[in-house]
């Protein structure tokens, strides 16, 4: 994996990397991808319907309204939650 691929993936991942970090990530991930290539040529097909058969998607709990969590508690991690919370100023 070269530095340009790292930069492309970083952009897709919404991540910033310095040039030095990009080079280090490229070196590390190249070695790793080399080891992961072992699965590429296997003659195997994934069968999605075989997975998650244990999940109880047809057996959901009753849709009964329950008391909600207090607003103050829900907002306790929001920035400046004095009767409101702050969103970042974004200028596009």
């Amino acid at each position: 994996m070269d530095v340009n691929t790292v930069k492309e993936l970083a952009a897709l991942s919404f991540l910033n990397f310095t040039q030095e970090e990009s080079e280090k990530a490229a070196a590390d991930l190249s070695a790793e991808v080399e080891e992961l290539k072992i699965v590429k040529d296997l003659v195997l097909e994934y069968a999605p319907l075989k997975d998650n058969r244990g999940a109880y998607l047809k057996d959901l709990r009753e849709d009964i309204p329950a008391p909600s969590m207090p607003v103050e508690r829900l907002l306790q991690n929001a920035v400046n939650s004095e009767n409101s919370f702050v969103v970042p100023k974004v200028v596009e």
Partner: peptide, 20 residues
Amino acid sequence: ASRAEGFGFELKKRILLGNF
């Protein structure tokens, strides 16, 4: 910027590998 500051380098590499 938030993700770059908030995540460590190893985690960022895992995210790149996952998206790869």
